[in-house]
C-alpha cells in the first residue's frame, strides 16, 4: 500500500443533449423572459478596438450533414492580445461568445474583433486565434479547436507546428471570403476532419 494522493479526478462529462439551448441560450430556445438576455450574445461592445470581422460556418458530421443543434462558445483576447481582466485589456472586449447553429440551415455566425497574438509559455508567440468549444447531442465530451486566419503569419505558431500531417493544418484556418469576412467549417469526422485539441 502507498499513501493516497490529495488530488481528485475531474467529474466526467456527459453530452449536452438536444436541449442545451434551454439551459444556455433560453431566449434562442423560445423561452424569453427567464433572463434579461442570453449569456454571451456578443464578445465585443461598441467601441472595441481593432478590425471587426464575421466568421460564418457549419458543424458537419461524418455523413456530410450540417448539425442543426450544435452550440458553440468562443474565447479570445482583444486586438492587442490581452484577455479580459488582464492589465491594459480593452474594456469593450469580453472575449466570450455563445452561439448556435441555425435550426434550419445549420449555419453559425460569429461577429467579433480579430484577436492579437498571444505569448506562449515556452517563449515565442501564438499566431492570432480564437478558441472554440463545441457541444451537441452525440458529442459526449465538448470538442475544443481553434480558428486561425489565412491572412495572418501562422508559420511560427507552436500549436500548428505540432501537426504532423501538414494538410490537416488547413482545417484550423479560416478562409477569407471578403474584407472582414471569413468561412470556417468544423468537420467532426470523415474527409478533412478538423483537428481537435486535448489542451
Amino acid at each position: 500500500m502507498v499513501q493516497s494522493l490529495d488530488t481528485m479526478i475531474e467529474t466526467p462529462s456527459q453530452t449536452a443533449g438536444p436541449y442545451v439551448h434551454i439551459g444556455c441560450i433560453p431566449s434562442f430556445a423560445g423561452l424569453p423572459g427567464v433572463y434579461p438576455e442570453d449569456l454571451g450574445l456578443s464578445p465585443i461592445a461598441p467601441g472595441a478596438k481593432g478590425q471587426v470581422i464575421t466568421i460564418t460556418g457549419a458543424v458537419i458530421d461524418g455523413t456530410g450533414w450540417a448539425l442543426r443543434d450544435a452550440m458553440m462558445e468562443s474565447w479570445q483576447p482583444d486586438a492587442a492580445g490581452r484577455f479580459a481582466g488582464q492589465d491594459g485589456a480593452d474594456p469593450a472586449v469580453s472575449g466570450f461568445c455563445r452561439f448556435a447553429a441555425d435550426k434550419d440551415s445549420g449555419l453559425f455566425t460569429l461577429t467579433t474583433v480579430k484577436p492579437g497574438p498571444v505569448p506562449h509559455r515556452s517563449g515565442g508567440v501564438q499566431a492570432p486565434h480564437i478558441s472554440l468549444w463545441i457541444v451537441a447531442r452525440g458529442i459526449n465530451i465538448g470538442l475544443s479547436t481553434r480558428i486561425y486566419f489565412e491572412d495572418e503569419d501562422n508559420s511560427a505558431d507552436p500549436l500548428l507546428s505540432r501537426i504532423e500531417q501538414r494538410p490537416r493544418v488547413d482545417t484550423l484556418i479560416a478562409k477569407k471570403t471578403a474584407e472582414g469576412q471569413y468561412r470556417f467549417d468544423i468537420r467532426l469526422q470523415g474527409d478533412n476532419e478538423t483537428v481537435f485539441l486535448d489542451i
Partner: peptide, 20 residues
C-alpha cells in the same frame, strides 16, 4: 448519434497556453 459525430483521428495533445 455519437457514431457520425465523434472524431475518428486522435486529438492533438498539448500543454495549455494562456488561451486555455
Amino acid at each position: 448519434t455519437s457514431v457520425p459525430r465523434s472524431p475518428k483521428w486522435p486529438l492533438l495533445s498539448m500543454e495549455s497556453t494562456p488561451s486555455e
